[in-house]
C-alpha cells in the first residue's frame, strides 16, 4: 500500500539552521496494517507523515502509494487515498464554518467541489448519526461554527470526518495530545474501530507508550531521523510495557 524508498528530508538547506529531519528512511507498509510510531521530540515522526501526505516533498527518495509514484504529487491530489488527523486540533477543521459544512467538505474529499448544494436533510441525518457515536452531544449543534468547540471536540470530529469519504490510508499525528484522558481513550478506541471497520491502512504517532502497546499491528520507533526499531505483529504482541519504558531510559 505504502512504500517509502530511501527518504531523506533536509530543511533550510545550505543555511546555518540546516536540519536533516529524515535520513535515508525506507519503509514498506502493506494494506490494512496499523503502524504505531513512537520516538523522542524532533525525531522526524511528523515529517515522515508530511512527506507521505504531500504536505512536504522529500529531498531524496521516492514515495509510492498503491503502486503509483507520488513523490512530486501535491497534497491535495494525494487526498484521494489519504485522510489525516493533525497534531494541532485547529489544523484539521475550518473555524468559521459550521460543523455541518466541515463534514460536507470531508464527504467530498476525493471528488470535485461542484456548484451544487450538498447539505440537505439526508446529509444532515448522516452527519447526525455519525457524530452521535461520540456521545459528546455535538449531534445537536450541527449549525454551530467549529471555532466555538474545544480542541478535543474538534479533534474528535476531525477523526470522524476522515471516513466520510472513501479512505484507504489514515494518518493520525498525536490525535489525543490535546485531550483529557477520558476523551483520549474514546478517540483512540473510535479510531481503532474505524480502522477495522473500513479496512484502513493506518499510521498512529503517539507519545503514550500504553497506547502504543495496546493499539496497532506493528510498532516503529524513530530516533534522530531514522527508524531505530521495527517490530512486526507477533513481536509487538509479545512486547511488555516495562520493556518499552526501558527503550527511553
Amino acid at each position: 500500500m505504502i512504500e517509502l524508498q530511501h527518504i531523506s528530508k533536509r530543511f533550510n538547506k545550505g543555511k546555518v539552521n540546516e536540519v536533516l529531519a529524515l535520513q535515508d528512511v525506507s519503509l514498506t507498509i502493506p494494506e490494512q496494517e496499523f503502524v504505531v510510531v513512537i520516538g523522542a521530540n524532533g525525531s522526524g515522526k511528523t515529517t515522515l507523515l508530511n512527506i507521505l501526505s504531500g504536505a512536504e516533498y522529500c529531498t531524496e527518495g521516492n514515495v509510492i502509494i498503491s503502486g503509483t509514484d507520488v513523490s512530486r504529487l501535491p497534497e491535495y491530489k494525494r487526498s484521494k487515498w489519504i485522510a489525516r488527523v493533525f497534531q494541532d486540533p485547529l489544523k484539521g477543521t475550518a473555524s468559521d464554518l459550521s460543523i455541518l459544512d466541515n463534514f460536507r467538505l470531508a464527504a467530498i474529499r476525493t471528488t470535485n467541489k461542484k456548484l451544487i448544494i450538498g447539505v440537505n436533510e439526508a446529509f444532515k441525518k448522516r452527519v447526525k448519526d455519525t457524530i452521535s457515536i461520540l456521545g459528546m452531544g455535538l449531534e445537536n449543534k450541527l449549525e454551530q461554527s467549529m471555532g466555538t468547540l474545544s480542541g478535543g471536540q474538534r479533534q474528535a470530529l476531525t477523526l470522524l470526518m476522515s471516513v466520510m469519504d472513501d479512505t484507504r490510508i489514515l494518518l493520525l499525528d498525536e490525535p489525543t495530545a490535546a485531550l483529557d484522558p477520558r476523551s483520549a481513550a474514546l478517540i483512540l478506541q473510535t479510531a481503532d474501530n474505524l480502522i477495522k471497520q473500513y479496512h484502513l491502512t493506518a499510521i498512529l504517532i503517539t507519545h503514550n507508550l500504553k497506547d502504543a502497546n495496546q493499539y496497532g499491528t506493528r510498532l516503529i520507533q524513530m530516533g534522530e531521523g531514522k527508524i531505530i526499531r521495527d517490530l512486526q505483529k507477533t513481536d509487538k504482541a509479545a512486547l511488555t510495557l516495562p520493556q518499552m519504558y526501558e527503550w527511553f531510559n
Binding site: S53, A55, P74, E75, Y76, K77, S79, K80, I82, A83, R84, F86, L90, K91, G92, T93, A94, S95, D96, L97, D101, N102, R104, L105, A106, I108, R109, T110, T111, K113, G118, V119
Partner: peptide
Amino acid sequence: IAMRATGNSTSMTRALG
C-alpha cells in the same frame, strides 16, 4: 464551502483535496 474553508485553514483544505 470549499472556497470559504480555504480562507480559514489551508492545511485542512489541502488535506481535503
